[in-house]
């Protein structure tokens, strides 16, 4: 769909031949990773497969030993989390998204607070911060009781949702969700998946990192599976069943019926 709309058929992010070693340990051994726009891509792999290292390279926490990253077709070098933010990459970590003891509005605007001028002073505009935060969250379907409530009072799902809402509001291009649902109840998981879909509808691409296929199968357009520092493969959702994906995550074996399809497409 998006290919027809956009004249330039460039993916949002293209990581080519990413190789990363810590000392003598090779964590990533030449991984290619593509994120189109807008799409939800499930990045799957067991613990220690290398998926978080791959993402940390994308968000500037680590530098790749070899390999090149293209963002919107341009070669970029992301040397710090700050660079990643400048490009429009927002990461929502499982526990690190929000500050529990301060209000939703303060959290929402953290780092880019709204101020008003009072005489010579720049003072936080609490009213506008609360109103706009509530509006922005309502736009993607999150209804909060009051923006003055501390985040600590919200459930895990609501917190993730607010972090997602914030990324959407600030016009980010790529949202990375790191195991967003692993600590949530079934109902809250459904909520978060719902907002993830909304985020895509508003034009973002989403990388959904998980080791549990059940959480992401419903919303993802594509899966990338990593095992032992290598990519097992990219699969479109229609081509592959939930069971097959789970099997590949565990064993790294691509079923024969699939092994030819993705290669020819790319």
């Amino acid at each position: 769909m998006s290919e027809q709309e956009k004249p330039k058929n460039t993916p949002l992010v293209e990581m080519q031949g990413i190789f990363k070693s810590f000392g003598s340990v090779d964590v990533l051994r030449g991984v290619d990773f593509v994120v189109n726009r807008p799409e939800i891509i499930g990045l799957l792999g067991d613990n220690g497969a290398g998926k978080s290292t791959l993402i940390k390279i994308l968000t500037g926490v680590h530098m790749p030993t070899h390999g090149q990253i293209y963002f919107e077709g341009q070669p970029v070098s992301i040397t710090s989390p700050h660079d990643a933010r400048e490009l429009g990459i927002e990461t929502v970590y499982q526990d690190l998204a929000l500050i529990p003891l301060i209000s939703i509005a303060r959290n929402f605007w953290l780092g880019q607070e709204l101020t008003r001028q009072i005489g010579p002073l720049k003072v936080l505009d609490h009213q506008r911060m609360a109103d706009k935060a509530r509006e922005a969250l309502r736009d993607i379907g999150i209804n909060i009781r009051s923006a003055e409530e501390p985040v600590g009072m919200l459930s895990g799902g609501e917190r993730q949702s607010i972090a997602i809402g914030r990324a959407v509001y600030f016009g980010k291009k790529l949202l990375i969700l790191d195991e967003p649902t692993s600590a949530l109840s079934v109902k809250q998981t459904a909520e978060v998946l719902n907002y993830t879909r909304r985020a895509k509808e508003s034009g973002l691409s989403v990388i959904f990192i998980t080791h549990n296929i059940a959480h992401v199968h419903e919303v993802a357009d594509r899966f990338t599976i990593i095992r032992g520092g290598r990519k097992v493969g990219d699969f479109k959702k229609e081509d592959v069943s939930e069971m097959e994906v789970a099997h590949m995550v565990m064993t790294g074996q691509v079923p024969e019926r699939l092994s030819l399809v993705p290669e020819t497409e790319e």
Partner: peptide, 25 residues
């Protein structure tokens, strides 16, 4: 503490340094 951006950053840094860093503080 209550009315400036710096105050908000102070709360954030103490409340959850990881999240504060993730927001570019």
């Amino acid at each position: 503490l209550m009315q400036t951006s710096y105050g908000n950053h102070v709360f954030a840094v103490g409340g959850n340094p990881g999240a504060a860093r993730a927001q570019g503080i």
